[in-house]
Design a protein around this nucleic acid. Sequence first.
DNA 1: AAACCGGTCAACCGCGGCCGT
DNA 2: TACGGCCGCGGTTGACCGGTT
Length: 272
Amino acid sequence: MGRQPCCDKVGLKKGPWTSEEDKKLINFILTNGHCCWRAVPKLAGLLRCGKSCRLRWTNYLRPDLKRGLLSESEEQIVIDLHAKLGNRWSKIAANLPGRTDNEIKNHWNTHIKKKLKKMGIDPQTHKPLDSCDGGGQRGEEQMAEVGAGAETASKKFPRSTGEVDEEWKSQSFCTDEVPVILPEEMMVPPASTVTSISPSSPSSSSINSAKVEENQLACINWSESIPWWILDESEGWDLLWDHSEGGLAVEDPFSDYGSSVLDQDSWSFSLQ
DNA sequence: AAACCGGTCAACCGCGGCCGT
DNA sequence: TACGGCCGCGGTTGACCGGTT
């Protein structure tokens, strides 16, 4: 069965996302959630296909993403799960909260593969490489090391295997379970992480000092970036500390969908 | 200083599966 | 059951960056 392209590509933008596009997408999803990805770019005013938007969101903009290299224990979990699941990156990612399948796949290809080969282990089969070079036995020893490492990691990080506990399940999700974030469900970090904002001192000058370089926007943690996105007046985003509403009103210049209010008690957005 | 090279990773491509009609 | 649309997954590409010559 032939498959039609996901979208009419004529006139659609490709390649790296700009910070403005990021903002539009983030703001749209914060405000509206995503109904179906195909509709998102149109509604958000983006010249992208829905697929591109979904990828950008799931791999880069999602608020719960961890940034930076995988830790030792995370690496061991990846190795352990890869031995069981193969290249099922999304399944592996499901056991590593805050990590995406793409990230894990890249890390596997660029770091772990080499590491395993160095250790005399075939990264695909997880068995010792050809024993002709005498490395077989060593490879097995190393396999044991890897296994032990994985076991250790499992103990430290009991979500690495099939014995994923319920509590963990409730906290983690697969990239294909990226929640449809309704505005009222949208949570931002507790006030302790948003030190630049204070209801009693909504000074825009101190706020502006927290501004980061535009291109760093996507590289910083959500917890750091939330206040900036809200506060970046140079881009036309307005922050209003609304005492009567008990929250922050976020005006969106890019959207026709009105503004959101950030509740200071629950740190959740709600539509106005 | 410039050219080259290799590593990294965001983004794209295309297929397969699922679901509704 | 067949068909068509949508989404997610895994593989691949290519731009960018830092190190080396």
